[in-house]
């Protein structure tokens, strides 16, 4: 019955032909999104990347304020307080982080035994230095080295690769031969030589990491420049009379920015790891300065009796590496979907 009623309602007007208005067909309904807005929408959907970003921000925040939180200085030694296990107020009642540690095979509360009233959240090392403070100081140094090294890599790599690709010809030939020679020398040898010449320290490590680190970036940028410089929109710009500077800043760089950012995001964890590696084998930072590498090296020596010395820096470096890599992955998917595989 219902169907019949509906049929009755149809009038001849319902069968009039709908003409398409040419003007109407040119309309675009979708909201206009810039490349970066679109990338942000893509990144937002990637849960791992968002969680990593939050975790990373927390770690960076702790690296900035952590050393001032519990009132212990990172370099003040107190031998009476040496080798204390972690003790955190509030959590101690649960049985974890209550200051219990092993002494000559027996579990005893070292804080009570040594009559220590203060709390050392992550314990102390063999010289009685507060490990919580040292951990965040070390994280700060490691992050600083990584960010500076990545930034220098980026600047040198983009400039070198850009010049090599854009001007091409003989310039390109010479610059690429130089790169091939540099890449032929094992990085570690260059680094050890650098550190022998310079005083060991933050500067030496940054120089050591950047001296060969920019090559990867320069190759990527060169390839991108070669790809884009013969694109028709660049040719169009040249027929309009645009100068080289304009073409590079307005057409080439904006198109390469995504890949440059992605590559930098993968450079940072590598730099963190490389710094830790150098410090671990003893040619990096020198005591009393702390970095994640030196802390891990300290912890590794007392791994069996005081595992907490190794545990916390190891967790922080792992979290940093994972977070940077996941963010890098997320950015890659969002900025350059074609690079996924």
């Amino acid at each position: 019955m219902r169907n019949e009623n509906e049929e009755e309602k149809l009038t001849p007007e319902d069968f009039e032909r709908v003409t398409i208005d040419a003007h109407h067909s040119e309309r675009i309904e979708k909201p206009s999104l810039s490349f970066w807005q679109d990338a942000w929408l893509g990144l937002r959907k990637n849960k791992a990347a968002i969680v990593s970003m939050v975790v990373l921000l927390l770690v960076i925040l702790m690296a900035l304020i952590g050393p001032y939180l519990n009132g212990h200085a990172g370099d003040s030694q107190n031998l009476r307080h040496a080798n204390l296990p972690p003790k955190i107020p509030g959590i101690e009642a649960t049985g974890f982080f209550d200051g219990d540690g092993k002494l000559a095979g027996k579990t005893v509360n070292l804080y009570e035994m040594k009559k220590v009233d203060e709390y050392y959240w992550f314990g102390t090392d063999g010289l009685g230095r507060d490990l919580f403070t040292r951990l965040w100081e070390g994280t700060r140094v490691s992050l600083f080295i990584a960010f500076v090294a990545a930034a220098i890599d980026m600047v040198i790599g983009v400039a070198y690769g850009g010049i090599s690709g854009y001007f091409g010809g003989r310039t390109d030939d010479i610059m690429q031969r130089v790169v091939e020679i540099l890449i032929g020398i094992p990085t570690l040898i260059v680094v050890i030589l650098m550190i022998m010449i310079m005083d060991p320290g933050i500067t030496a490590i940054i120089v050591a990491i950047t001296i060969t680190g920019w090559i990867g970036m320069s190759r990527i940028v060169r390839a991108q420049t070669l790809k884009y410089k013969s694109r028709e929109f660049v040719l169009a710009s040249r027929t309009l009379g645009a100068k080289d500077g304009k073409i590079i800043t307005k057409h080439l760089l904006p198109n390469m920015l995504g890949i440059i950012i992605i590559n930098t995001m993968f450079t940072i964890p590598n730099a963190i790891f490389f710094e830790a590696f150098l410090s671990f084998i003893g040619i990096g930072l020198q005591p009393p300065a702390a970095s994640l590498g030196t802390l891990i090296n300290d912890g590794y020596k007392v791994m069996e009796n005081q595992p907490y010395v190794l545990l916390f820096p190891a967790i922080v470096i792992s979290v940093l590496m994972i977070a940077f890599n996941l963010i890098g992955d997320g950015l890659r998917d969002a900025l350059d979907p074609k690079m996924k595989d």
Partner: peptide, 27 residues
């Protein structure tokens, strides 16, 4: 002036149409 073959390669994907068309005006 020149009109190019591939309409997908001849416009810079990072620029708004306004800026693409105005490029010559600016130069």
């Amino acid at each position: 002036q020149m009109i190019f073959q591939d309409p997908y390669a001849s416009l810079n994907p990072r620029m708004k149409v306004l800026d693409i068309i105005a490029e010559g005006l600016d130069i």
